[in-house]
Design a protein around this nucleic acid. Structure first.
Length: 451
RNA sequence: GGCGACGUGGCCGAGUGGCUGAGGCAACGGCCUGCAAAGCCGUCCACAUGGGUUCGAUUCCCAUCGUCGCCUCCA
């Protein structure tokens, strides 16, 4: 069974399922106000791999991932560009899923929108007010974090230390709040801002209230796994959890956080540093599979540098994958059981995908070697295992594109020239094809072309 | 100030108290080729520093140096 690091307990422990045979997971989705960046790509890929692996293992997975389509940054952009905020959120969501499609990230089973859940959020906030865990100020409704006993569980910090550490930073809304760490549940609207009705006045929900309501509504209390990037651990996830705890509800049983994308200097990619890279650019410039491969060759909790060198290295690694598929094509053998077992062991150990990839590459080498030795049956078992694992982690094989007739004709002419030992002609034809972007592979069996 | 992660071979990156000295990329050698390329096979290089525990430490403990992250934008 899968063992995963749990942020709440700070240990690797078994992912205990609420219902045997099915997994309920929640992943905080994007706030749709701009193009997705590489960090979004990492998070979605990490959990896509997890989801596929779980499904490959025979489990049913319900993956809920929201769209945050109410937020200050959306409103700010709408004001700046003087256009309706809905236009921005719809466009950005379309771009988001287009990027996910290119990455090969399967669509979540549920994609709730914050705007569809405002009534439920108002209800929940009202309950928090009723039981005295939340209070109103002149600009909104706040949660009183001091009423949540274990506030700080996910960051492993005591409330007092956190506040002290705020150091010289300005505490937002300090004058109105009972405690500096109290966070907003409902923001009262300023004139012209999009708003929804509530007992406290027209306004909009705070970010932290959105995810807690949607996750509990769709997955129910005590769902299995809550996922997201490290940077969401605090305050977002801590605050989601605080609301559920304040209401006396069981929240996520297990918390999983993926590491950051860092730049070449090892510094986190973040908006304030200005080193954020657009995901769409990456997908345009490189084989989209390369990012998945790069992440698979790293552990999900560690930092990853998504630079040209690393991506290039992964592109090359993919070539070995594709080479296997080209050499063997579809196989009907049973997959080698030892290889699959080793793969499961690696994955079950806190998703050790680098070890899993090592197993795959070993299997590829062995398959090629077995075929070279004439043991095709053995080779095919290994190939079948590689195919199965590729499916489990969402890697696909590039079969190469169709070769157009004129290029195929040149390849045939090249073979004829070689047969006639007219090497000047053969070299010229090869140069032409290479100039057109083809990788020209000349073997005894004839010339093959691929991009 | 509080909390935490990490320093592995040219690069990326797993892992373990004494045989894995993973795997990928690069490099080098071989096979293949008319020659190349591509592909395949093989080879090579390691555990930040100083102590300690131990029969034995890259792996455990302590210290030092260094890097990075979180402590109300953020995947």
């Amino acid at each position: 069974m899968l063992r995963l690091y749990d942020t709440a307990t700070r240990e690797v422990r078994e992912l205990a399922l609420r219902e045997p045979g099915s997994v309920s997971m929640y992943l905080c989705g994007p706030t749709v106000y701009g193009p997705p960046h590489i960090g979004h790509g990492r998070a979605t890929l990490v959990y896509d791999v997890l989801r596929r692996y779980l499904e490959w293992s025979g489990l049913r997975v319900r993956l809920v991932s929201n769209i945050t389509d109410i937020d200050d940054s959306i409103i700010n952009r709408a004001n700046r560009e003087n256009r309706p905020w809905q236009e921005i959120t719809e466009k950005c969501e379309a771009v988001w899923f287009e990027a996910m499609g290119k990455l090969g990230v399967a669509r979540p089973t549920d994609v709730p929108h914050a705007t569809e859940y405002v009534d439920e959020m108002v209800t929940m906030i009202g309950q928090l007010v009723d039981i005295g865990r939340a209070y109103t100020t002149d600009d909104g409704v706040y949660l009183s974090v001091e009423t949540v006993e274990d506030y700080g569980l996910l960051v492993n910090q005591h409330l007092a230390d956190m506040v002290e550490g705020g150091g010289d930073r300005e505490v937002f809304g300090a004058e109105n709040k009972r405690h500096p760490a109290d966070f907003v549940l409902w923001k009262l609207a300023k004139p012209g801002e999009p708003s929804w009705p509530s007992p406290w006045g027209e306004g909009r929900p705070g970010w932290h209230s959105e995810c807690v309501v949607m996750s509990l509504d769709l997955l129910g209390e005590g769902f299995d796994l809550h996922c997201g990037g490290m940077d969401l651990k605090f305050p977002h996830h801590e605050n989601e959890r605080a609301q559920a705890v304040a209401l006396g509800k069981r929240f996520a049983n297990h918390w999983m956080h993926n590491g950051f994308v860092v730049d070449a200097e090892g510094e986190k990619m973040s908006k304030s540093l200005g080193n954020v890279h657009n995901l769409l650019d990456l997908l345009e410039q490189y084989d989209p599979r390369a990012y998945r491969m790069l992440l698979l060759q790293s552990h999900y909790r560690g930092p990853v540098s998504v630079g040209q060198d690393n991506i290039d290295s992964s592109v090359k690694a993919l070539a070995r994958f594709d080479g296997l598929a080209r050499r063997f094509g579809p196989v009907s053998s049973d997959a080698d059981a030892a290889v699959l077992d080793a793969f499961r062991t690696a994955m079950d150990d806190d998703l050790n995908t680098p070890a899993a990839m090592a197993i795959v590459f070993d299997a590829i080498t062995q398959a090629n070697a077995a075929a070279d030795d004439g043991d095709l049956a053995r080779a095919q078992q290994l190939v079948a295992a590689v195919y199965s694992i590729a499916e489990a982690v969402g890697l696909t094989f590039a079969v190469g594109e169709e070769v157009p007739a004129d290029a195929a004709a040149k390849a045939a002419a090249l073979d004829a020239a070689r047969a006639a030992k007219d090497f000047a002609e053969a070299d010229a034809l090869r140069a032409e094809l290479q100039a057109a972007g083809w990788t020209v592979e000349t073997t005894k069996a004839g010339t093959t072309l691929r991009r």
